[in-house]
Structure formats: C-alpha cells, structure tokens
C-alpha cells in the first residue's frame, strides 16, 4: 500500500516533467525547417512573410541549371526518338532551339523571390505589452492588497475581495471586446494615435493581471502574524510604517510569486491582445503605435500558414516557450533566494 501510494505520487509528479519536455521536443521538431533556414538571426529579423527577390550567385546557379537542363534534354531526346525516328536532323535543330528557350526561361528565374520570416517584431511587441501591463498593474495591485488586508474594515474588505476574484474569472475575450469598444477610444482620446496600439493592449493586459496580483498579495499579507504587527505598533510605529517595514518584507515571497504568475499570464495572453494590439508586423515607433505579439502572430497566421511559414510559427512558439521559461526560472531562482 505504502509502495503503491509512493509510486502513484511519483508518477503524477513526473508526468508534468514529461509533458514539459514533450512540448519542447515537438516544438523543436516542428520548427526545425525554420531553424535550419534562418538560424539564430530569426530573432533579430524584423521581416515577416515578406517576398524578397534574391540574385542567386551566377556560377553555381548556372551549373545547377545546366545539370537540370541536360537531364531534361535527354528526356526530351528519348521522347522525340520514339516519336520521330526519320527526321534526326530536324530534331537536332529543334534541340538547339529548345536549349536557347530554356536558357532564356532560366535566366528570368534566376531573379527569384524568397519569403522571409523573422521574429523581432512579435518579440518586441510581447515584451513591451507585458512590461506596460506590469508597470500599470503592480502599484495598483499593491494598493488594493494593502487596503484589503490592513486598512478596510471587514464589512468593506469582504465584498471588494469578492469583486476582485470575479474580475479574475472574466474570460479574456470579454476583456478584448470591452477594451476595443470602450477602453481603446478613451485611450486614443487621451494619448492620441491609433485606438489599437501597444499602449491599449498593455493597459487592458494590466487590468487582466491585476486581480491575480492583488488577490495573491493580499493573501500573503494576511499571513503576517498579528503579534508581529502589534509589536511594531507597540514600538510606536504608525500604520504606514508597519505596512512598509513589517508587512511588505514579511510577504515579499508572496508578492514576488504573484508577479511571476502575472508575468506568465501576460506573456501568453492571446485573445484580448489580438483585439487590441493592431496585428501588424511593424516595429512600434511610439507607445501608441500598433504592432503584434507572439501569441497573436501565431493565432492570426496559423490558418493560412504552410511550409516554411508554418515552421516559422512553430519557431515563434518555441521562442515564446523559452522566454516565459527563462523569465520565470530567473525570477524564481534569483528573487526567491534573495527573499529568503
């Protein structure tokens, strides 16, 4: 019995690990074509789905063209031999003409087009929207948490706490619609520029991560022992001093945890951002210019993508995976170590 229980809990724990590695491997395999094609330069390349005409290097291309031509000519000869044995001379003449024609065709094809993919724009869009969301949400979430855990009387703190938890339960598409129809015009009036932009997307994202941060921070502030607060008050500390010197340091770990969770959510948020970011592949020139984020790029382009384009989307997914993974690992290892 003891053994079964042990193995059962072990296998459920390792399942998560296996899924994590499995996702990484499938992403890697699916994005292999794009990785081979673009390499690490993908990250710094601002193009996406852009037809670029390229001049193939003259010598090597001529050789390959000749090789392929020879094959074709041989095929042609075989066919023509079968059909017209009697007029060999004619065929020789024809052959010459055909080669000329072929050369002309290939000469035009040397200036061929090539579709270029790069991840710089969505990476920048993702990081900037997340940053705006955090900068907007962090102080407000701290204010809410301090108010709910320390300042508000119980009969007020309770309904506000419930309202905040309900805010966390609203599906992201509703935030997207609300943001597009009601919030974006207000922002555009205030700051100017487009209604759909980096700023609008970041602010709505901030509203979305706000309840998580506030609720977790409030809970960890509530774990501060009363006697610790009382002993600070007994030293003659004011409420502000108790919050600043006792409650914040005491709940530091919980606050960092809430930021990490919010970061994770903000990095991967798709629907609400898709409504609001503008979805154009252009580097933002100002805070109110439209751009695109990684999840939105994936959601918008999967339908039509094929071949290298599809592989590039998987490459994007891999990058998002690595970004979130790194940020959360760094935050966990560095800050939590520092806090404890």
């Amino acid at each position: 019995m003891e053994k079964i229980f042990r193995n059962l809990s072990l296998s459920s724990a390792s399942l998560v690990f296996i899924i994590l590695i499995g996702i990484f491997i499938t992403l890697f395999l699916a994005s292999k074509d794009a990785i081979n094609e673009f390499g690490i330069g993908f990250i710094t390349n601002p193009n996406w789905n852009k037809e670029i005409s390229i001049e193939i290097d003259a010598k090597s291309s001529n050789e390959t063209i000749k090789n392929s031509k020879v094959n074709e000519i041989e095929d042609f000869n075989l066919e023509s031999d079968l059909f017209s044995d009697e007029d060999d001379i004619m065929i020789d003449d024809e052959d010459d003409i055909i080669i000329d024609e072929d050369d002309m065709l290939f000469n035009e094809d040397i200036k061929t087009t090539f579709t270029d993919y790069g991840a710089l724009v969505p990476i920048v869009g993702t990081i900037l929207t997340t940053l705006i969301a955090l900068i907007f949400a962090l102080p407000i979430a701290m204010g809410i948490a301090v108010f709910l855990s320390e300042i508000a009387p119980k009969n007020i703190a309770y309904p506000i706490g419930i309202a905040i938890e309900l805010l966390a339960a609203i599906p992201s598409i509703i935030f997207g619609m609300w943001g597009l129809y009601y919030f974006a015009p207000i922002i555009a009036d205030l700051v100017g520029g487009y209604q759909v932009s980096l700023l609008t997307a970041g602010l709505v994202l901030g509203v979305m991560i706000l309840p998580f941060m506030a609720a977790i921070t409030r809970d960890s502030m509530n774990t501060t022992p009363d006697v610790l607060k009382e002993s600070a008050y007994a030293m003659g500390a004011t409420k502000f001093e108790v919050i600043k010197d006792i409650i914040f340091p005491y709940s530091k770990v919980g606050i960092i945890g809430s930021i990490i969770l919010a970061l994770g959510r903000a990095l991967g948020e798709t629907m609400a951002v898709a409504f609001l970011i503008g979805s154009i592949f252009a580097l933002p020139t100002a805070i109110n210019s439209p751009t695109i984020s990684i999840p939105v790029a994936m959601a918008n382009n999967f339908g039509e993508a094929s071949g290298l384009g599809e592989s590039s989307l998987f490459y994007l997914a891999l990058i998002l995976f690595v970004i979130s993974f790194t940020i959360i690992s760094i935050a966990k290892l560095y800050f939590l170590k520092k806090a404890s």
Binding site: E230, A232, Y233, A234, M235, G236, E241, D245
Partner: peptide
Amino acid sequence: RQRVGMIFQKPTPFPMSIFDNVAYGLKIA
C-alpha cells in the same frame, strides 16, 4: 507606546537585521 513598551509571548523579531531591529524604534522616533 514609546513610553510604555511591550514584549509578547512569542519572540517577534522583525524581518530585518539584528542592528535594524534594535534601531527600529529609534529610527521611527
């Protein structure tokens, strides 16, 4: 409360260094 101090049942060190703990009351005064 600065004139009438209080010590509790359980030790209540603040989450800071030993020096800052003792200096806390002086600093806020």
